[in-house]
Design a protein around this nucleic acid. Structure first.
Lengths: 199, 199
DNA sequence: ACCTGAACACCGTTCAAGT
DNA sequence: ACCTGAACACCGTTCAAGT
């Protein structure tokens, strides 16, 4: 289905190349934040002070640029899950992670759609990182379920459907993003068990 | 903020105009369904057998075309709410309506984003219809709450946030849309009260 | 290896000319 | 009143020429 391995951008070794690479990434993050994932590539190049061809040399397609711009955030989620894995309260740990996940997924308009696709499509640059993130979240879910704090029949896929849904609402409600917390809480109250009981 | 009243397309009286209007709408619905709300307008015009100028004459902007293509579906939701308003079980009525709402919101990719904006922004062609739809759904929610079947602190806005979130997931999961039903059920179990009690 | 920017392609949008 | 399609603008993408 997908034509070969997806292109993953790599920071060049040569000084001028590395400098441009960084400048493009910084400009891209800014542009994505204000204009969404469909931000003008020409504007990004101009903002970074390079010609459009240089942008394409480092990032041959939009997906590779988005991937590079959000790679660290995804990695942070994996790292956060690792730190939370030995927390005393597995439900609190899961909720804490979910909050961070929703926040990262809605870093800018259009990101959550890209991530949702990446989670299941191998032909996408961020597929590997998404898999790792998915697995790290699933582990926290399983721990909370083992402790009898979350309904046992909730699958990781369903959890991510809920998380991406909330993230999308957040993406599209920049006015008062606080209500997203309330939304997550509403959903969680339905997912958690009333009285703790082992599986 | 918004520049005057938003343009609402109206079906022309003259025979050739009316015929083209209908042809464009039919082509647009098809194109939206397969390519999403960003479908090529030139392709739609070609498919309808008219020149691009004719499309623009009837629908001066994309928003007016989307509005016209989805107007009936929104109206159906209002009508459905009216019919369900005297159902014996107000919770079942609400759930039935929610299912239809999610399905309409995810008629094609990109629609739910447009609707979410229209719900709160007056400068949008479908604002009026969205308001009516919003109010009709809110009435069903209030009835279920009066009967003590839904938690009393859930606002209509929160309900629509949840509905649009689920609709977005459905939009982006064309592979197995059935899981959306499960998603809605998961959320509902959290929103409904365990034992009925009057407000 | 990397950079530049002109050239090409595509598509949205407008408008003068026509019926 | 309505239709046509050429013309313009904008932007994504490629590539030959340069360092």
């Amino acid at each position: 289905m997908s034509a070969g391995a997806p292109y993953i951008a790599r920071r060049p070794k040569r000084a001028d190349g590395a400098r441009n690479y960084d400048a493009i990434l910084a400009a891209a993050r800014k542009a994505f934040e204000s204009d969404g994932a469909e931000a003008s590539l020409e504007e990004i190049a101009a903002q970074a002070g390079v010609a459009i061809g240089t942008l394409y040399r480092h990032f041959p397609n939009r997906a590779s640029l988005v991937e590079a711009a959000t790679r660290d955030g995804l990695g942070d989620l994996v790292e956060l899950a690792r730190r939370l894995s030995d927390a005393p309260d597995p439900l609190e740990a899961l909720i804490e992670w979910m909050r961070h996940a929703v926040r990262h997924f809605s870093t800018f308009r259009g990101l959550v759609g890209i991530l949702a696709q990446s989670m299941y499509d191998e032909g996408t640059p961020s597929h590997e990182m998404c898999n790792a993130m998915h697995e790290s979240g699933a582990a926290l879910l399983r721990a909370a379920q083992r402790a009898g704090r979350v309904r046992a029949d909730l699958t990781p896929e369903e959890m991510f459907d809920l998380l991406t849904g909330v993230a999308w609402v957040r993406e599209n409600a920049p006015a008062d993003r606080d209500r997203t917390d309330r939304l997550l809480r509403l959903i969680l109250e339905g997912l958690t068990t009333r009285t703790p009981h082992p599986a």
